[in-house]
Write a protein that binds this DNA or RNA. Structure first.
Ligand SMILES: [Mn+2]
Ligand SMILES: [Mn+2]
Ligand SMILES: [Zn+2]
Ligand SMILES: [Zn+2]
Lengths: 150, 150
DNA sequence: TTATAATTGAGAATGAGTCTCAATTACAAT
DNA sequence: ATTGTAATTGAGACTCATTCTCAATTATAA
């Protein structure tokens, strides 16, 4: 007999505090987001959920994604021309991204030096920073090679 | 008799190279973007242009914005839920942003240390970085005070 | 002047995301 | 278990930024 996963606890507690309910639709959506490893978009998630036979409408997917952001289990990575990209933040330490223009792949990285430097910069400006996003665009190793061959 | 502003030269040269024409619509749009100091959105620009009596359709505004991005006179700052934000990049050195969650104001800043650190990080990952965006969200001085008073 | 190709604008189309609302469901109190 | 109340759901309508279509216009070169 297994324990209730901790993300479920977090989410249902979050909902309860607000007088909201932990329904099976929300549960299905939570599970899919937590099982995903990389970045994802709402529509993709919706399709996966349908395929898996679980029932949840597109509207519920969007509504639940908002809730999951509010309670900190997932977060927005960026907005693109085709939609918003999210990723699990629960059990996934803060990091920034290098994004390949060639193939769309993303490298996740973390630098303590970078984080501290940002704090300094905020201090210098009298700004109280709470979150940040750094996105470096360019070419991954593979795409650099491809470019040379051409 | 004044010289043709350099941005016009840049843009018309860019267009000519591609067999495209420097029309009065494009010229009007270029002028408005170059006269703007801060961040702007296409719709705002369109409205300003109309008010100024110049004629250019929304379609042309969007089309010209793309061209101006391609030739490097302006660039995308970020995408929000209500649309895309641009800024002039011609004569406006590279910088990053601190964005106030309270009032929406933006602080522009530049740090050489930060730029160099990013280069290091790319090197470490074998990534060939070309551009980046760093956005720090939080509270500006004014909004920090407001918060305390509450 | 003419042929050719680029451009324009009005409005239709697209598509992500939100909203509406009647029907369903969860929950708590009896 | 029954009932009352409030939250939730899903289908599809709607919004709104952006792109597309296409006939009419305009620039350019021959
Ligand atoms: Mn990530
Ligand atoms: Mn700026
Ligand atoms: Zn790549
Ligand atoms: Zn502020």
């Amino acid at each position: 007999m297994r324990e209730k996963p901790i993300q479920k606890q977090v989410f249902s507690r979050f909902l309860k505090e607000r007088g909201q309910r932990f329904t099976k639709e929300r549960s299905a959506i939570l599970e899919k987001t937590m099982s995903r490893n990389g970045h994802f978009e709402p529509e993709t998630l919706y399709i996966e959920i349908r395929k898996a036979g679980a029932k949840a409408s597109r509207a519920s997917v969007y509504r639940t994604i908002s809730l999951l952001c509010e309670c900190g289990l997932i977060e927005q990575v960026r907005k693109t021309e085709h939609g918003t990209v999210y990723e699990r933040s629960f059990g996934h330490e803060h990091h920034d991204h290098m994004l390949c223009i060639g193939c769309g792949s993303a490298i996740e990285f973390y630098s303590d030096k970078l984080e501290r430097l940002q704090e300094d910069l905020c201090r210098q400006q009298g700004f109280q920073g709470t979150t940040h996003t750094l996105e470096i665009r360019g070419y991954c190793r593979k795409c650099q090679k491809k470019k040379k061959q051409t």
